[in-house]
Design a protein around this nucleic acid. Sequence first.
DNA 1: CGGGTGTACTTTACCGGTAAAGGAAGGAGT
DNA 2: ACTCCTTCCTTTACCGGTAAAGTACACCCG
Lengths: 342, 342
Amino acid sequence: MAKVTLQSVADEVGVSRMTVSNAFSRPDQLSADLRTRILEAAQKLGYVGPDPAGRALARGRVGSVGLLLNGALSEAFEDEVSAEFVASVADELTKRGLALTVLTPPKDEAFVPARDVAIDGALVYTCEPLSAGVEWLGRRRLPVVAVDQDLGDSVPGVRVDDRGGAAQGARHLLELGHRRIGILTIGLVGDDGALGASDSYPARERMAGWTATLSAAGVEPVVVLAPYQPTDAVLQSARELLDSGDVTGVLCFSDVFARAVVRAAEERGLSVPEDLSVVGYDDSPQASTGRPTLTTVSQDVTAKGHLAAGMLADVLEGRTTSSALLPASLVARESTGPVGAR
Amino acid sequence: MAKVTLQSVADEVGVSRMTVSNAFSRPDQLSADLRTRILEAAQKLGYVGPDPAGRALARGRVGSVGLLLNGALSEAFEDEVSAEFVASVADELTKRGLALTVLTPPKDEAFVPARDVAIDGALVYTCEPLSAGVEWLGRRRLPVVAVDQDLGDSVPGVRVDDRGGAAQGARHLLELGHRRIGILTIGLVGDDGALGASDSYPARERMAGWTATLSAAGVEPVVVLAPYQPTDAVLQSARELLDSGDVTGVLCFSDVFARAVVRAAEERGLSVPEDLSVVGYDDSPQASTGRPTLTTVSQDVTAKGHLAAGMLADVLEGRTTSSALLPASLVARESTGPVGAR
DNA sequence: CGGGTGTACTTTACCGGTAAAGGAAGGAGT
DNA sequence: ACTCCTTCCTTTACCGGTAAAGTACACCCG
């Protein structure tokens, strides 16, 4: 079967190639009658519609944007909050006539998604700013929207008021009378296998929010780092935190971390919140599902996704956009209570 | 800044366009020395590398494959098991030099991802077979690999032995002495809002495995349907199941369903597994994390993703492939026990 | 009846690459 | 010295579309 192109349909009907193109892409440019005939001929020949690759080249737009994620892709998808974000991004993009292409970290030099995949722009989601992927996107001069991250003033972004959210969590513990407070935040596994502080936007901002609030009250927190994964490593860090200081309250980087702290507390015969108050972060589904339900900092992830995707779509349509800062709010649940309640 | 193309670099160096193309894409076709000069000139002019869109048209291959998901995208991403699958697919594809483009269900006729996005092939993941997306992929004659689904003999696929897995779950309960058994499986919300049986491959096969095994033992199960989402609707169905029959064991379509059953049981003052045994499905993280840990049916989702992606990549490279059936195995944990243990 | 305004197509001129065949020059083998 | 490879670069011939400007004819109006 010879390949079916616009031209073959044009020949069949006896019109110009351009007219067939219009029949599919700009119906208002030809008479309804001719359009019908063209569509029928196309059907007969088995022509499905304009080839996206050819169209992309001619139009100069591909119709798909990239999503650049950090290292382990599985992390992003397995985390309920990230997953929700990705879903809402895809959702909004579809509305705007764009598809979503996942830009994974390259396995080797031969194929680098951020360099080799046809996209019109990209969303950069919690990558460390120095990521090679970000650099390629820049070299290609692709429009980029940063999410939960600061890529400089020239790159518009959507960020959450992580500092403010963290501050609310800290204030909450202070108001409950806690003075010996621990922080379980995220660390990056370095080359030597040891954990170092993460300089990602959320890590930095949340830490800033916590420490600023606590030190204003004269409280010096005990800080312990935990890796993003796996579960037992997180649990290990949680144990470490409980053992290293006699804390009555813990501020966590995520709800997963908070759950680990709760578990470590139970191992030690401590009840939450009677003996230990725990504040999570993200308000992921498990915050309200498990027991005790977690006091946590909530953000509207869906709105974040819609907004980020919309911003990128706007930029691609030639509109100008400016960065946005979304609010975060404390949700008090069962995992926190007055100090010394028992 | 004028657009920088292969040609402009060629002019700068004084070689043919083709040579510059080779410098980037086929280094073995020119001398190392010339290649260096070309790369330097490219750098100087700000030429990043061959434009993916142009390359796609010329090569006839785009370098990206689609992933067609069912209705709500958020479902796929929020489910830990699906997320893991997607991650492993993306992982394997990257190794094979392919990117992953998410084909969302269209919001309107104007933009239909499965029709309008440039891809070389697609993975179809648990879509109801009659999905419009699948049809478009067929019309475009794109290579497709089906996952957890039967798209006919002409479409290669990766499936899990859901029937066998379900049978193991059922046999497990029978061996523990259970004779009054309930099944909480998935239903589709129909147009009228009522739940109907799902005819998806996993739903059909698991049900077949359960009922075949149970009826061979002379047990007639109580079957209740639950929607995939949201949590409280699932819980409602779980309550219904417990109320509608005096069962001592329940076989569930997923671990989420199983958790709902456990919760409904607790509401009624029943302990798991003393008063009620519950079998989940999928062995998702929450099966081993929460309490009680869930007896469930495990499958190697990562292997499934790698395999499916690899099969598609093989097809694109001209190799022939045949469908695969992966094993499923029962993992006995705390949520099941001998009938009448108390 | 001349001129302005649509409507409906066609023409022209690209979009940015790559595969495969073509040639020219240098070296090895006999 | 002649032939046969190789190596390295160039030539030719597309890949499948679209934007924008051009042409032709019909219609409306004063």
